[in-house]
Simulated scan of single mutants.
Amino acid sequence: MKLRAISDLHLASPANRDALFALPDYPDDWLILAGDVGERFEHMRLAFTELTRRFARVFWVPGNHDLWAIPEETGLPALVGEERYRRLVETARAHGVVTPEDPYEIWTGDGGPCAIAPLFLLYDYSFRPAHVSRDGVVGWAREMGSVCADEMFLNPAPFASREAWCSERLRHTEARLAALPAHMPTVLINHFPLREDLIHIPRAPRFTPWCGTRATADWHRRFNALAVVSGHLHVRRTDWRDGTRFEEVSLGYPRQWDQSRGMAAYIREVLPGPDQAEDELAAPRFRK
């Protein structure tokens, strides 16, 4: 029994859908699906259907692409903001998938017991240099070709802004985590990285404003995290901070992974997983 993770399936791509269909079964294992499944509800339903057939339990957190307000092929207006998120939660629950709105489940396999905590936190543009203002951050990023499509497609309604929505999600989630039993270990799951120093995207060095919030920099310590799982960056890697393992588990677009290896090669083991000494001695699977 293992806890595994992957993110950024981007099922709008036929190659990624084919890889999902070819995925073998893991009947005893739990899977974390850390966001960016696809832009349409049909992609979400496809992922939830296929993955719940293959894994004993599936956990999902939303990525920014999942929240994009792109008109569905039916021609009906797209759901936006909080309403879209709530409908995604309903879709996940209808397939038996655990969401950030559900009670935290307790992992009792190797590496446990610990609480599996799916989070939905968004970002607040705080991952920027001190000299760059909030009003100027999009222009600053654009100077080096970094423009996030969220500026067009991620509608935060009914919140006034994406950072206001982020603030509410932080408040809500922090209270839930603080209510866990004292000293309960956790696995924290969020689409966006919890720390700015985990962002390594040389191809787009000014994409950081759309990558998280400084408010979560110490959450791995505050909430006793054994591991923190994220995606979004499309840069698969393992990092350690304060004895906590941080796993970026993106699959990505077809050009960003070796299709001859299949999707299974990109599913990361989270628990029991290596300890830090074992990981540093092992042959490097991921750039550190």
Rank of each mutant, 00 (worst) to 15 (best):
A175C: 02
M184W: 04
D242S: 05
F223M: 10
G136D: 11
R214S: 14
G139E: 13
P181H: 09
A175V: 13
H234C: 06
R237E: 12
R162V: 15
H172K: 08
L188Y: 04
N224H: 15
H220I: 08
L154Q: 04
R171A: 10
R162N: 13
A160W: 00
T173E: 12
L177H: 12
E168S: 11
S161M: 02
R236L: 08
A157D: 10
T173F: 03
N155H: 10
W240T: 04
R171C: 00
F246K: 13
H191L: 04
A179V: 05
S161Q: 04
D239W: 00
H234Q: 11
T208I: 01
P156A: 09
I189D: 05
E163L: 10
F153G: 00
G139V: 01
E196M: 05
T238M: 09
F207C: 01
E151D: 02
G231M: 11
R245F: 09
E143F: 00
V229S: 09
S230K: 01
H191Q: 05
W219N: 12
D239L: 14
R169L: 15
R203G: 05
A179E: 15
W165V: 09
A141N: 01
H191C: 06
R176F: 12
G243A: 08
D239T: 11
W140Y: 14
I189K: 01
D218R: 13
F192G: 00
L177S: 13
P202K: 03
H191R: 02
F207D: 03
D135C: 01
P181K: 12
V229F: 00
I199T: 07
H183R: 14
G231Y: 13
V147F: 14
E168T: 12
A227H: 00
V138M: 06
R203S: 14
P193Q: 06
T213D: 05
L188G: 10
A179P: 06
P156W: 01
L198Y: 04
R241Q: 12
D197N: 14
S146H: 05
W240P: 07
E143M: 07
D218Y: 07
L177D: 14
S146N: 15
H191S: 05
M184G: 04
